[in-house]
Lab assay of single mutants.
Amino acid sequence: IEEVKKIVSEIQSKQLTRITINGNTYQVNSPEELVEYVRKVFS
C-alpha cells in the first residue's frame, strides 16, 4: 500500500495522463480515476 501511495503522489505531482500498471497503459483524466484503476489492480 505504501508503494501505491508513492506512485499516486508521483503521478499527481507530475500531472501524468497515462499510467502503466502490469504492462497495461491506462488513460487517466483525474486523480479520482487513477485511484479507481489502482483499486482494481490491487484489490
Rank of each mutant, 00 (worst) to 15 (best):
I1S: 12
T20E: 09
E2Q: 08
G23S: 04
K5M: 14
L34C: 02
V41Y: 13
T20F: 07
S13N: 11
V35W: 06
T25H: 11
S9C: 12
V35G: 01
T20L: 05
Q27V: 15
S9Y: 14
K40S: 11
F42A: 02
E3K: 11
S30C: 04
Q27S: 12
I11A: 02
T25I: 10
E3R: 10
G23E: 02
R39Y: 14
S13G: 08
T20W: 05
E10S: 04
I21G: 00
T17Q: 03
Y26A: 04
V35F: 04
L16Q: 03
I1K: 09
V35E: 07
I7S: 01
E2P: 06
E33A: 08
V4P: 04
G23I: 03
T25S: 10
E2R: 07
I19E: 00
N24H: 14
V41S: 05
R18K: 13
F42D: 00
Q15M: 10
P31L: 08
V38Y: 01
S43G: 11
S30N: 11
Y37F: 14
T25N: 04
I19F: 06
S43F: 13
I19A: 02
K5A: 14
Q15V: 04
T20R: 04
V38G: 03
I7A: 06
E10G: 03
S30A: 04
E3T: 12
V4E: 09
I7T: 03
S9N: 13
V35I: 14
Q27C: 12
L16K: 07
K14I: 05
V28P: 01
V35H: 02
F42C: 10
I11F: 01
Y37D: 01
K6T: 07
F42R: 01
E32K: 05
T17M: 06
E32C: 04
K14Y: 07
R39H: 13
Q15D: 03
K6L: 11
S43D: 10
P31W: 15
E36P: 00
V38L: 08
V38Q: 00
L34G: 00
V4N: 02
Q27P: 00
T25C: 13
V28I: 08
I1M: 12
T20I: 10
E2H: 08
V28R: 15
N22M: 11
V38W: 03
I21W: 05
Y37I: 15
I21P: 00
N29H: 07
T25P: 03
I21F: 08
F42G: 01
R39F: 13
F42S: 04
Q15F: 08
Y37V: 15
E3L: 14
S43R: 07
L34P: 00
E10C: 14
G23W: 12
K14V: 04
S9A: 14
V35D: 01
P31Y: 09
K14W: 13
P31M: 11
E10K: 05
E3A: 13
R18F: 09
Y37M: 15
V4H: 06
T20H: 06
Y26M: 07
S43I: 09
E36D: 10
I19C: 05
T25A: 05
N22Q: 06
E32A: 08
V4R: 03
N24E: 10
I7K: 02
N29S: 15
V38H: 01
N29A: 10
V28T: 14
Q12Y: 14
V8Q: 02
E33N: 03
Q27L: 09
I19R: 00
V38N: 00
Q12V: 13
E33C: 08
K6I: 08
K14S: 09
R39L: 15
N24L: 15
E10L: 12
R39M: 15
I21H: 02
E33T: 03
